[in-house]
Write a protein that binds this DNA or RNA. Structure first.
Lengths: 336, 336
DNA sequence: TTGAAAGCGCTAACAA
DNA sequence: TTGTTAGCGCTTTCAA
């Protein structure tokens, strides 16, 4: 910038004004400065700008997701980008892989970069470490799971109700032996979904059979194995509820391998690409990733822009999409 | 940091040394400083660090993709993150949506942030605007498409050969009337894939029939429409080659709607989730997104770390995955 | 081993 | 309308 000022024969201040489109600059000077900028290939240094600005704006928001490669989260990410862009901000995204230590490490780093706001899909159970940061003015919104030991906005899926809706759909179809295929038992979302499963059964007076519950199916492979084992038992379930898209896919593979995809009902939590193209189509309780990402980011920018209204917890409703797999009737069994 | 120094009763320099794990600090002082840091909830300001550093390191690399929500690109993104992380860098990712103007705008912005390196999946046809930046030391690697009017490393898929491989597979199966379902005709990758299609036909002495070529199918919906139209013509193709995953999915929908998914062969360029679960399984020419992202990022960091060896163009080979749809035989026709 | 002081590129307050 | 000067939070040079 100094070089530009020297070449244009003006002061730093004038160059700064031209760069920032300050109207109080004479047209001739503006042209001179623009010329010098082009000639020297000058690029303003956003880092220095942020550094000096009184308002501390860094034009950056941080986004911590379990995995940017997860199709659902990738779409959330895109929605966050689009809203952030509309507010003149870029997104620094990181993948946290479900590890509380890593969550903290990544978040500390984003804070060190002085992001204006932080959207966090948390892994840990204690977010009090963010208190100081929140106090000092960084906006924070939680995604997918609510914060613990911290007051902050959150955007959640209706895990409990959504799961219950899916399980009730199977119950209404006449199923009584409905298996629950869950993921990491320690996660809040899985706990919620499991509660929804239990509540739905209870609501219809169906006893919970622990033999039909499988937890900690963290990969599609584990889900496939567990489901195969479940389906080849002497007293198999007549329907499956999969608590997550990856588990749903594992369950489909298992159903195919034991040739029961046409006879055992399946409802999955979360939609996935091509679920409608499978045979049978996969019935799911779907949440809209664009809505999740957009809403979280809009709340974030409202806070950044000074909104001091009470903390909110937004719960997005899941929609049951019937495609066939959830509408399979239980087989008639003589023993009943 | 000043406050920390004051509280610990040492100079700024000493605090800086402790923060940066400089060994030349007495243990007692180190403890004092650490105590003050905790007490004041001090967080180093990475922006200021970058700003002042002689080597100009910003610990950030920029990544421009068409769309971070695209499943293939999302996995590329994750691979980039992982490698960057291993090098102590975060990733500032942006979506460019195939627009040259936007590409340039986003790239300029990343440059303004003084990223250490830039991985670009380009939309435009002229990258000479990056010359000044490259001169001044920013590493640049191109993804998916090579740069134009700029000498820079690139990591590409073997579009031409990969497409030819897929089309040859159909030819070997006895198909002669193979349709080409392409996307934006103006894109380099589509041109390459189309050339591969043409070359494969020519190689087997099959005349190119323009009536079987459909370009500019930019969405799955357009692909579905075009394919339906093609399949319901008087003289329909007996096999389809889809140049992109979204087109493949559109083509599958079309095949289903006219009840020809068991009789018309289909090979797609690029794999997609659950392609193996469809009926029939979808035969594709697949490229590994993790390999693409990792390789590009490793090259980037080699350059950042001073590698001055000649520019390279890495071409990753596609792998034909046979799942059924590409192995359907042409229907026996009396007219032949 | 530690400290004092300069300065990175820019903006903000104030003066002209 | 334009210029001068100070200083953001840190690293670096140089001296103690």
């Amino acid at each position: 910038m100094r070089d530009v000022a020297a070449l244009a024969g003006v002061s730093l201040r004038t160059v700064s004004r031209v760069i920032n489109d300050d109207p109080t600059v004479a047209d001739t000077l503006r042209e001179q400065v623009r010329g010098a900028v082009d000639q020297l290939h000058y690029r303003p240094n956003l880092t220095a700008t942020h550094f000096r600005r009184r308002d501390g704006r860094s034009f950056t928001v941080g986004l911590l997701l379990h995995d940017v490669a997860n199709p659902f989260l990738a779409t959330v990410h895109r929605a966050v980008q689009d809203v952030a862009r509309a507010h003149g901000c870029d997104v620094l995204a990181a993948s946290g892989t479900d590890d509380p230590l890593r969550e903290r490490e990544v978040v500390e780093r984003l804070i060190a970069r002085r992001v204006e706001g932080l959207i966090i899909m948390p892994a840990g159970d204690d977010h009090s470490y963010l208190q100081a940061e929140q106090m000092s003015g960084t906006a924070i919104v939680f995604l997918d799971r609510p914060p613990a030991f911290l007051a902050a906005d959150s955007v959640l899926a209706d895990n409990r109700k959504g799961a219950a809706k899916g399980v009730r759909h199977l119950l209404s179809g006449g199923h009584r032996r409905i298996a629950y295929l869950g993921y990491r038992q320690s996660t809040w979302t899985n706990q919620q979904r499991y509660q929804g499963y239990c509540a739905a059964l209870r609501g219809r007076g169906v006893a919970l059979d622990p033999a039909l519950v499988r937890q900690d199916l963290c990969t599609a492979e584990l889900a496939e194995e567990a489901t195969t084992e479940l389906l080849t038992r002497p007293d198999p379930p007549d329907a499956l509820f999969a608590a997550q898209a990856a588990i749903t896919i594992g369950a489909i593979r298992a159903l195919r391998s034991v040739k029961q995809s046409e006879s055992t009902a399946l409802v999955g939590f979360d939609d996935f690409n091509t679920a409608d193209l499978l045979e049978p189509g996969i019935t799911v309780v779907a949440h809209d990733p664009v809505a999740v990402g957009s809403l979280a980011t809009e709340i974030l920018f409202r806070r950044i822009e000074g909104d001091r209204s009470p903390i909110t917890e937004h719960v997005l409703k899941g929609r049951l999409i019937q495609r066939g797999s959830g509408e399979i009737s239980p087989a008639f069994e003589l023993s009943r």
